[in-house]
């Protein structure tokens, strides 16, 4: 199952995302922001980083890259698209997801292992979870405060499109502790925390069982892979 990972100028976690796809059982395909070619992939990850140095607004310039024309088309056709951190910011800037992300409430960059509650298992990137399940994956951002107008937030909540919620601690002042959301169809998901950093024992967050053994991020990638196989 081939999943594309787009590299933009300033992407940092594109290789980690590719590695996560491989560990989840898929085949990562490197895609380039300046191309108009998705190379026939069956899913797309927009990785984290600081594309264009966060100039203008985080993700704003990358969201208008050549390849984003194809990404938007593919998303509208129902292809699974995941935006992680800077990728989430791009998805809002490309209007594939509602709302926006602003500087953290306390003004500082936050890096921590973050507990999340999986609020919906009906998206293409969360189908391998049980609703209400608690997971721990790393979070690292300076502009992760999710905001949207009251009407949009009510619609996201009402339609079950809040995919992940911060649990115990809201690191960036996101409205209603929202960590990740989905589009109406459930194929496009964006989240600020980094599932690709919790995919391999020895390199993930600490768990009660052992240090750095957390691999909760793996199932996000498995969800899409299993969904594509089942389709």
């Amino acid at each position: 199952m081939r999943i594309g990972v787009v590299t933009f100028p300033g992407s940092l976690d594109d290789r980690d995302a590719g590695r996560a796809i491989r560990l989840a059982g898929g085949e990562p395909v490197a895609l380039w922001h300046g191309d108009h070619d998705l190379q026939g992939v069956e899913g797309i990850v927009l990785p984290g980083g600081f594309s264009y140095g966060d100039y203008l607004r985080a993700g704003a310039i990358a969201a208008r890259s050549p390849i984003m024309t194809e990404v938007v088309d593919a998303a509208n056709r129902g292809l699974p698209v995941l935006g992680i951190c800077n990728g989430f910011q791009m998805l809002t800037e490309a209007h594939l997801l509602p709302g926006g992300l602003i500087r953290n409430e306390k003004g500082s960059f936050v890096c921590r292992d973050q507990t999340l509650r999986v609020e919906s298992s009906s998206t293409q990137w969360t189908s391998a979870f049980t609703e209400g399940e608690e997971i721990v994956i790393p979070l690292k951002n300076g502009e992760g405060g999710f905001i949207a107008d009251t009407e949009t937030v009510a619609r996201l909540e009402g339609e079950g499109r809040v995919a992940f919620r911060y649990l115990g601690y809201n690191p960036n002042g996101s409205v209603r502790d929202i960590a990740g959301i989905a589009n109406e169809r459930g194929n496009v998901v964006g989240l600020m925390p980094h599932p690709e950093h919790a995919v391999e024992p020895g390199f993930g967050p600490d768990t009660r069982a052992a240090m750095r053994s957390g691999v909760d991020g793996l199932r996000i990638f498995r969800s899409a892979l299993e969904g594509v196989l089942a389709a």
């Binding site: 203008l56 607004r57 800037e93 709302g99 926006g100 602003i102 905001i147 107008d149």
Partner: peptide
């Protein structure tokens, strides 16, 4: 369309 994001 580009210089501002009307959401924020």
């Amino acid at each position: 369309s580009l210089l501002s994001n009307s959401v924020i």
